[in-house]
Design a protein around this nucleic acid. Structure first.
Lengths: 350, 350
DNA sequence: TTGTACGCGTTATCAT
DNA sequence: ATGATAACGCGTACAA
């Protein structure tokens, strides 16, 4: 059916191994022979069978992608396509392909991983998330299989190559920014605490407050899985406190959009009545009303560097463990204002 | 290193072929032997080498995904993760894996496809887009390789299995909806005409107008690649016509969000001054201000059905060509109002 | 510089 | 019901 290496060999009048060497562009083949063989390949429309090659060479030139459960926020979030684009570009550069998990539950995903690894379908893995308890990590470390984590591993940080932002610092910076604007009653609206990124951002938020001697209040920290449902309730509760916050640090642009809507519904103006900052700086941040002040975490680079570094690990097994920190920077738009603008004692009508 | 079928055979005291049969759960193996073999597999932590299996069986249990150039709108759009989730679920159901292209340019993507097909890495392909001129289509048809298109093929519609919405009808419905609200000056704001979906939607829009005898105006149809840059200009031009439209049919929620922003900037209220409807009904539609009236095209199902049908084609080569139409429905929110609300003759200040 | 022969880990055919 | 043997298409020592 399809031409194989043998067909090419026959047509070119050489042995199969010579053809193989021409494919690998071996320096020990004369230019004349190379040309002959290449002509034959063209003529037959030959393309190497990657499966056979993989079996023989014990390498697939393929990177496996492990996404968190598609039930999770991650998949709805513009974060995903962007990081994927980064990975894609990093992989393409070195001629690697991408293979994806399809599992939904944690259990299914674990099985996908085993199947990729033991099934020898991939040379390495990128974990697109980092959560607090993750059986996949143990499995991979135990087998000493090349992988990199996007985000900060919860345990074994020193032993796992990962690509991350300094989320602690970013949250600290952003909170400090609000403090500098005069705010003292600053609340944190976060996501699932099972994700390490959320933990880091809460901690950074708390540190900033401690640094300037602002008292922490438990009722100022809310965690909602997602904003559309329970989020509204949580927001209303937060804002009906005796001393409602004058500023909000929101863990994610998408959540912030929900927050903005809720605020709008209950008649609070941003930034006049309350300031909002968030993270990720996806396109949405720019397109929301008002445009969101947001921390740009360079999502594309997170993906791109993961791919690059994973490939290095694959091609050089002695590569040392690395921590790559992608820089972030605050993009100021219109969702934050100085405290004197806000009127924290106004009555909020529900 | 890793246990192979031979190791299992040795430990279980049977031949490799018996182990292979146990894996396939062949009915011609005694339960006793099966148990013996399975115990050995557990004990060794055996998992089949999918690469070797693929080489021997000439099948990969893998679906290839072809995304349009990542430069295109597609990747930025929430459409992508959602359709991917659908595909993922459809594939998972039948134990298929996913393999992705990484190319950016049209040329690179074409090469990715060839590599997947001739490299025998995948059993079939899903094209996540449909454009007017696409060399990939010709290549696949010529080789008679199983594939399905998401969207409507521009040519050879009868010969290509595809999963699509009735975009013509949807656009017609939505335009009619505006007409029913009393609008007559209805403009169409579309995307890249190289995508068939755009073409279909314009045509539906035009048909609706013709049906009710409203005169078509060329200046009422604008096509902008994307909304953030040139889109603003186009919008302003559109709205400064002598007789500006009182309603807009926008080809996509993301574009509609941009449109909403532009309208907001130039001080036009939605829906009081102008009505807006769009397509896709992604989460954004719900979260924008005002919430967008949008055609829900059931993106997830587009993906899910593509995967299902592709797998059918793979497993039954005589499967007839199919056209699967995923239903759509108009989700009415707050971005459309009756004509009497709008004031088409107001002066617009820039 | 090129060819021969074997192995990669399975599945499939043909015996028994 | 099970085993031996030959593919599957390619890479690579080893030979020449």
């Amino acid at each position: 059916m399809t031409a194989t290496i043998k067909d090419v060999a026959k047509l070119a009048g050489v042995s199969p191994s010579t053809v193989s060497r021409v494919i690998a562009n071996s320096s020990r083949i004369s230019e004349k022979t190379k040309k002959k063989v290449r002509d034959a390949m063209k003529q037959l429309g030959y393309h190497p069978n990657m499966i056979a090659r993989s079996l023989a060479s014990q390498t697939t030139q393929t990177i496996g992608l492990v996404a968190a459960s598609s039930n999770d926020l991650v998949f709805q979030n513009p974060f995903f396509p962007t990081v994927l684009r980064g990975i894609s570009e990093g992989a393409h550069e070195k001629q690697y392909s991408l293979h994806m998990t399809t599992g939904k539950t944690e259990r299914e995903i674990y099985e996908d991983v085993v199947k990729m690894v033991q099934g020898r379908r991939v040379d390495g893995l990128i974990l697109l998330y980092s959560k607090v308890e993750d059986p996949v990590l143990g499995y991979l470390m135990e087998r000493n299989f090349p992988f990199v984590v996007i985000g900060k591993p919860f345990k074994h940080v020193e032993e796992i190559t990962h690509v991350d932002n300094d989320n602690f610092r970013a949250a600290k910076d952003v909170t400090k920014h609000l403090v500098d604007l005069g705010h003292e009653r600053i609340a944190f609206v976060g996501g699932n605490l099972n994700f390490v990124v959320t933990v880091d951002r809460v901690l950074g938020y708390e540190k900033a407050l401690r640094d300037v001697g602002i008292e922490m209040r438990n009722e100022y920290v809310v965690h909602e899985e997602f904003v559309r449902e329970g989020g509204q309730e949580a927001m209303k509760e937060l804002l009906s406190l005796d001393e409602p916050p004058t500023a909000l640090v929101v863990a994610d642009d998408l959540m912030a959009l929900g927050v903005l809507n809720t605020l709008n519904e209950i008649g609070m103006r941003v930034p006049e009545d309350i300031s909002v900052v968030s993270f990720n700086n996806v396109m949405l941040a720019e397109m929301s009303r008002p445009p969101l002040t947001s921390v740009d975490i360079n999502i594309f680079d997170l993906g791109f560097e993961s791919a690059r570094n994973l490939i290095q690990m694959i091609e050089n097994p002695k590569e040392p463990v690395k921590r790559i920190i992608i820089p972030h920077n605050l993009v100021k738009r219109d969702s934050c204002g100085p405290l004197e603008f806000s009127n924290p004692n106004q009555m909020v009508q529900f």
